[in-house]
Design a protein around this nucleic acid. Structure first.
Length: 707
DNA sequence: GTATAGTTCGG
DNA sequence: CGAACTATA
């Protein structure tokens, strides 16, 4: 099943040329696809395809694009040092087409890449495999992103976990993941003179200024990731358990952007943290040991986000608990804007939103605060918030963010209760006891004494005056009173339950399919400001997308200020590759059993104990707003990994509704398309239903010409 | 001092 | 809802 290893000489086995397709694995170290390619001793062509239109509404935001561009440069330099000719880049609106063209034009015989687990990637990678295999190319994929494959972690009955805690416990009991691979000693690209590449452009003129500021605070690239990891392990990690709740990021790992782009290998993080843990455990350092446990849990949440997304391909855009479909979201674009601008009148929320706006970064705790406020106090549709995070976070990560927002909005079995409003005032004193965080980001409140800093509306007039605060002009009064929010929320919840009951009754009465649409939650469009113009231009090379809509003010994406505390020293790096040792990791297993859950007729709702029936065939009227379809996101899990996810019916994301199959599951089982029209409409072949377990198998096995 | 009801809070 | 924690008997 493994690629041929007949020759270990560096010379180059005639005839073997492997394209290594980089995606979110922008590293040279512990990169299984690259290592395997180098091991074949033939020629290796590293490649990257930039095709953001495929992400539809999730076109990467400015900061995300900036990071990516830096990271690619870094990777390119590393590859060249290893002897590769260059990182071959392509710009296209269709990754598969571009990749196939690239493979042909290089005359490659093999294509290796590391797996991704989001629905779009699974479908895309499947197409790649099919089409290239048909041409006689050997296609092989590897796991570089996870400690364990999503299909490896199952409960005692062989089903996927639906709650995080048992999932993570199981992971921790499993044999440790393989040790990280060292970088290849040498890469030989052969002659690439006849292989064209595109210049990739990730920023436009108007973004340069803001991006320059980012460069003062962050250093993308896998070697910098490595340094950041070391710095964290030797520094803040010991005190993580004591500090991780502080709003200031002093004890945060700040590794999430690196993890998102795969500049840092989770396996490496896991191993090194485990080693520290052992060490501290032997020293009797309880706090240090606990710190490791907590930090690893954050890594586990990232892992879990992939796990859930894999098992529930819809989780990026739909609540996983079905009753949430009936929640009456308040579609209020004014409130949405106020939230984004940090003018809600609740200091902790506003400070968080301004930090996000300014830096693309917010501590995980604060992400929870602002998103919880968004969902419960403002009752705005969580996918809006998720989309905004996607646009603005440096470590924006759809899977993690979806998990976070679902957690916050009460749509996970083990998530937070939806009916409990978190009080930003109390949380303020918990996470920011001295008000320093608020003062840093809300200069207008800087002179307010700590006693009032988190609830200026209660402060005596004299105090406000002395602090130069004038509520209502200088700084807003609370946009919504918590009491009012609370009663509105309770009302909304009872409405939700009524609708849910009515829907169940309707289904009981046998009016299932066909009428399903009428009871479905009407999809909520993104407001103008959040829409990206996706299909605007015919992807010529090097055209960049920017939000083009009335109402979207460019400043929303600008960096107004940068705090000195965020500026880290940059240092030049020199390559320092250790010895490459041959590893003999077992190939990925090919037997996966994922089917089972599909057969269950009814299950018990994890949150309510009620038996729920879910119509597996509920089509949503998605089509008309396909373009703004977004995956949902949530505040992140980000302390460690950053930002912030049952088994559906055994089917892969299906754009044409499955033929009247009704499965039940604590989750909404309908599998509306998760991808954007721009992708799917151009690829009709994908519109067929695929069997999920088949797909995952095909992704797992060696992919040599099967059938 | 323990036993226990009430409370908080968490992926 | 259930574990962990706290206030009270």
């Amino acid at each position: 099943m493994t690629a041929s290893q007949s020759s270990m000489s560096g010379g180059g086995e005639p005839g073997v040329r492997t394209v290594v397709w980089f995606r979110r694995d922008l590293r040279v170290e512990d990169n299984p696809a690259l290592a395997a390619a180098a091991r074949t001793a033939g020629e290796v062509v590293p490649a990257y395809v930039w095709s953001p239109e495929e992400d539809g509404p999730y076109y990467p935001g400015r900061v995300s694009r900036w990071w990516l561009s830096q990271s690619l440069k870094h990777l390119d330099a590393s590859l060249r040092r290893l002897g590769a000719c260059r990182l071959v880049t392509r710009r296209s609106s269709d990754a598969v087409v571009a990749l196939i063209d690239l493979v042909r034009s290089t005359g490659a015989t093999h294509l290796f890449f590391n797996r991704l687990y989001d629905p779009l990637s699974l479908v895309r990678d499947h197409r790649v495999k099919e089409q290239l295999s048909a041409e006689g190319i050997t296609v092989q994929s590897f796991n570089a992103d996870l400690l364990y494959e999503p299909w490896e972690v199952l409960d005692d009955d062989g089903f996927p976990f639906t709650m995080f805690a048992p999932f993570w416990n199981r992971c921790l009991c499993m044999p440790d993941p393989a040790a990280p691979l060292l970088p290849p000693k040498r890469i030989n690209s052969g002659d690439l003179s006849r292989c064209p590449w595109d210049e990739l452009i990730f920023e436009d003129e108007s973004e340069k200024g803001s991006n320059a500021l980012l460069a003062r605070a962050w250093s993308p690239g896998w070697q910098n990731a490595d340094k950041a990891l070391t710095a964290f392990l030797d520094g803040p990690l010991v005190d993580y358990s004591a500090n991780h709740k502080k709003a200031d990021s002093a004890s945060t790992s700040l590794l999430s952007p690196y993890l998102h782009f795969g500049e840092l290998s989770v396996r490496k993080v896991f191993h090194q943290v485990r080693m520290k843990q052992l060490m501290w455990s032997n020293d009797g350092d309880r706090a240090g040991e606990e710190s490791c446990t907590l930090f690893l849990r954050a890594i586990g949440l990232r892992e879990y986000s992939r796990y859930l997304t894999f098992n529930h391909p819809c989780s990026l855009e739909k609540p996983l608990l079905s009753h949430l479909r009936f929640f009456p979201w308040v579609v209020d674009e004014v409130h949405f804007k106020v939230w984004r601008q940090g003018r809600t009148g609740y200091p902790l929320v506003d400070a968080g939103m301004r930090e996000l706006w300014a830096t693309g970064w917010v501590h995980d705790r604060i992400r929870v605060v602002v998103s919880s406020f968004f969902v419960k106090v403002l009752q705005l549709p969580w996918r809006w918030g998720m989309k905004y995070f996607w646009d603005t976070l440096l470590d924006a990560d759809l899977e993690s963010d979806a998990l976070g927002w679902q957690y916050i909005s009460g749509s996970l079995p083990d998530g937070r209760e939806l009916d409990r409003i978190d009080n930003p005032q109390f949380e303020g004193y918990k996470f920011d006891p001295h008000g320093e965080y608020v003062r840093r980001w809300l200069p207008e409140l800087a002179r307010l004494p700590t006693e009032w800093i988190h609830h200026p509306w209660d402060a005596p007039e004299s105090v406000l005056q002395a602090a130069g605060v004038e509520l209502g002009s200088n700084y807003p009064r609370p946009i919504v009173e918590l009491d009012a929010a609370n009663s509105r929320l309770q009302g909304a919840l009872s409405e939700m339950w009524e609708l849910e009951a009515a829907s169940c009754a309707a289904i009981e009465n046998g009016m299932e399919e066909g009428l399903g649409d009428s009871t479905d939650e009407p999809p909520i469009d993104f407001p103008q400001e959040l829409r990206m113009e996706v299909d605007r231009q015919p992807a010529q090379p090097a055209i960049i997308h920017t939000p083009v809509v009335a109402g979207w003010r460019r400043e929303d994406q600008r960096v107004p200020s940068m705090t000195s505390s965020l500026i880290r020293a940059e240092t030049e790096l020199t390559a320092d590759f250790g010895n490459t040792s041959e590893d003999s990791r077992p190939e990925v297993p090919s037997n996966i059993h994922l089917q089972a859950r599909a057969e269950r007729e009814e299950t018990v709702d994890g949150a309510t104990g009620n038996t729920v029936r879910v119509n597996g065939n509920q089509q949503q009227q998605n089509l008309q707003n396909n373009m703004h379809r977004v995956l949902g996101i949530a505040p992140s899990i980000s302390e460690a990994s950053s930002s912030w996810t049952g088994r559906e019916g055994g089917l892969v994301p299906v754009w044409s509704p499955p033929a009247a199959s009704v499965h039940s599951d604590p989750y909404t089982a309908d599998e509306a398309d998760i991808s954007s029209r721009s992708y799917l409409d151009r690829h009709q072949q994908s519109n067929t239903m695929m069997n999920w377990s088949q797909l995952s198998q095909s992704l797992t096995t060696g992919w040599e010409v099967d059938n």
